[in-house]
Structures are given as C-alpha cells and as structure tokens.
Design a protein around this nucleic acid. Structure first.
Lengths: 222, 222
DNA sequence: TATATTATCGAACACTCGTTCGAAATTGTT
DNA sequence: AACAATTTCGAACGAGTGTTCGATAATATA
C-alpha cells in the first residue's frame, strides 16, 4: 500500500515543520540556518532537502499549513450561524484559541509574513486576504446593523487583528489568562469598544469564565 | 569650535540612521547588508564604520533614539495632567502621531525588537519597560476609578499596544485616515471597550475631527 | 532472497556576509 | 602655507550561508 509509505513521509514532514517552526519562532527565520534545523531534528543537512526544495519553501509550508487550518476551522465554525456579532465572536475565539495552542507557527505566520516572496508569498497572501475579508465583512455588517458612527471599519478591523496577532510579543501561558479568558477579554474589549456602549453587549460570552481582574494586575513585566 | 565639527558629524549620522531605517523597514534587518546601506547612502563600505562600530549598534542607535523621543515627548505631554483618562488619551495620541510620522523607525523598533542582543537589547528594553509601565499604570488607575470588571489589565494594556503597533502592517497614509483620525478611532475603540459603556465616553476627543466612516469601507485590501 | 523504491548522508562549491586596516583625501586650525 | 584632526576609502580576510550531487543505507515489493 502506498498509504503506509506516504504516512511515514508525512509524519516526518510534520516533525520537520514543527521543529523548524519552533526555531524560527525563537531566533527568527533569517538568522536560522539549515544547519540549525539539521541539528535540532537530528538529520543531516542534505537529508532535509528531501522534504523541501529550499529554505523559503520550508517557511511556506509552515505558513500555508498553519493558515489553511485557521481558515478552514473558522469557516466550519461559522457555518450555520447568521448573527454577525455571534459570527465575529466565533472568529475571534477560534483565532485566539489556535494562536495560543500553536504559538510557534502563528508567530512565524505573523512575524515572517514578508520573509517570503514571489508565488509562495502570493499563495499565503491569498488566504490571508480571504480571512481579512471575512472579518472585515462581519465588522461592516455589525456597523450597519447597529448604526455605528465615528469609527472607520478598516481601522477597527485591523485594530482587532492587532490585538489578536500582537500576543506573541507578550503572552505567557504560565502567567496570563488561558485561551478562553483571552478570547473573552478581547471580544469584550473590541465589541463594546466598537459598539460604543449602544448595543446589548451585556450578553454573556459563550465561554463563560469568571473574571480574571484579580490576577497579574501588578505584574508588569513584558 | 568643536560644536561646528560635531554638528557636521551629527548631521551625517542622522542621515545614515534615517537611510538605514528606511532599508531595514523595507526588507528587514537581517537581509539588509552593510553594502546595501553603503549603496543607498552613497558612502563606502568601510566609511560607514566611522559612524557605528557594528551592524548591531547601528540597529541600536535607530531604536534607542526613536524610543527615547517617544518616551520623552509623552512625559512632556502628560506633565501637569491629572485625570488618568485624559493622560491615556494623550499617550495614545502621541504614540500614533509619532508612529505615522516616523513609520520606518517605529517599524524597526517594533518588528526588530529581538534582532538585538546583550547590553544593547537591555538598554532599549529598559526604556520599553518604563513606557509599558506608564501605560499599564494608567489603565490600572482607570480600571480602579471606574470600577471596571471582567477585563484583565495586562491583557487590556497589551491589546492597546497591539492596536497601535500593528499599524505598520496595514496603514497606508494615502488611503487611510490621518494620524489624528487614527488616534480618535483607536482611543474611542479602546476606551469605550475598556469601560464597557459604563463611563461618560461621550466626551469629545481633543483632536475633534469628523467621522471617517464613509471612507474606505469597501476597500479591503491588506 | 533479489530487486526496486524510498530515504539519508558526507563532502564540496560558489557566494555573500560583517569587519578590519593602513593609506589617502578632506576639512579645520594656526 | 603648514600642520593637525577629521573623515573616507579600496582591498582583503575569515567565517558562515544555501544548495547540489553521487553514493550509500534502509525499507518495501516480488
């Protein structure tokens, strides 16, 4: 069966991608050498090239697989839900949940977006555009439905992405609230910020957790 | 007089820093070679080393000068203002104004924060910590004063920095609202988000500008 | 067990990088 | 004009880079 053989190949490819993502996340894409990856994976320098054809394609494989999963999962989650507010909440929750659970890959996706070029860049960016369009469409719908005034939809959308994607710069899973708490905080922050207190934002968020205000208030280390 | 001679030196140093920041911002710190900078400045490779002792110190000089200005200006602006809400508004306004007017340097500061190491890293990070402490202190005061519940101060503060620092990824001065509009939008977004509609956020923001909702709503390109 | 396919490796190549150094040119000072 | 200080430069060095290639090992197939 070719299935068995392909499974072995795929397993090792995933291992290579995961290990590479961890190193890229830690020291950056450009300063990382293929020799670093060889050392970390226990493979030889040339042996790695059996799984990718260039360093840039390695970066692409990480980004493409990672973003593909986020996009796919968000569509699956949003299917069948009509209310744009509820849809946006699900998008945020999915995004942050995936981010926290795949911090290395998401950091590489966010931080090394311009370390890739040509067709590979275009492929990743197509997915990115679809994702941004999805979110901005929701923000736009909400603005129209709730007659939001004085806030630019584009600014609001990218501010939301800023809140979410910046977390790789400060989030510490051992010190901060967990993924659910993060979703709750950022969803509340954005939604009542965007709606400006004019909407029923009192509605409890799906993942109802207790307040985390008591924790970490005096801990200011970045 | 040494003043005249130092002025010439300083003038050229600033020119080198500004040119380098532009290239770092465009193609990244690591992929940029000193030869790239030599070409762009019209100087020779070795001639550049009269103005810095290593590539890493060049990055440091850009970051340190840039952040020093932001920190200094913010303290100057906040001096004499007591109300924490008003103080935070001024901080946001100053941050975004400086960001928009020095996009290259601020991108290098935000995006290349970990491209520097050792003592140089520590020096920049000290200023960064002071700045974060200042902002988080304000957010904390506001939370206490307005009895904000259900939002983690640390999450809120870094979400604010996420909104502000992410702009180098999408902001286009020819397409988007100007610096004042950006401040107004993000201030409103964060404050009514954080206060959750329970405070007098109706108060007009300093830089009173008309709404920009009508612009760019259907323009979704990243 | 013999054979074909998949996977791995050592060694090397061509190239770019940051940095140095002594000399030359420019500028400022008497 | 003569001298000193500042500023610039060409040429080179040593180290590290991504990638290739032919051969070898490991695995699957028959």
């Amino acid at each position: 069966m070719p299935g068995e053989s392909q499974s072995r190949y795929d397993q090792k490819l995933v291992y290579v991608l995961k290990t590479s993502a961890a190193i890229f996340a830690e020291k950056g894409y450009h300063p990382t050498s293929i020799r670093d990856i060889a050392r970390a994976t226990g493979m030889s320098l040339s042996g790695l090239y059996y799984y990718f054809s260039s360093k840039e394609e390695l970066l692409f494989l990480i980004q493409d697989y990672c973003f593909g999963t986020v996009l796919e999962e968000s569509r699956r989650l949003l299917a069948g839900v009509d209310d744009p507010v509820r849809r946006l909440k699900l998008l945020i929750e999915n995004h942050l949940n995936y981010f926290v659970n795949n911090m290395n890959e998401m950091k590489v996706l966010s931080h090394e977006a311009n370390s890739i070029s040509g067709d590979l860049f275009r492929k990743v960016n197509n997915k990115k555009r679809q994702y941004v369009d999805l979110a901005m469409g929701l923000v736009s719908e909400i603005a129209r439905e709730h007659k939001v005034e004085g806030v630019d939809v584009r600014v609001a959308t990218f501010s939301l992405f800023g809140m979410m994607n910046w977390i790789y710069n400060w989030y510490n899973p051992r010190k901060d609230v967990d993924a659910a708490g993060l979703s709750q905080n950022i969803t509340a922050l954005f939604l009542s910020g965007f709606l400006g207190g004019k909407a029923p934002q009192a509605e409890k968020i799906e993942t109802g957790r207790e307040s985390h205000l008591d924790r970490n208030v005096s801990v200011w280390q970045q």
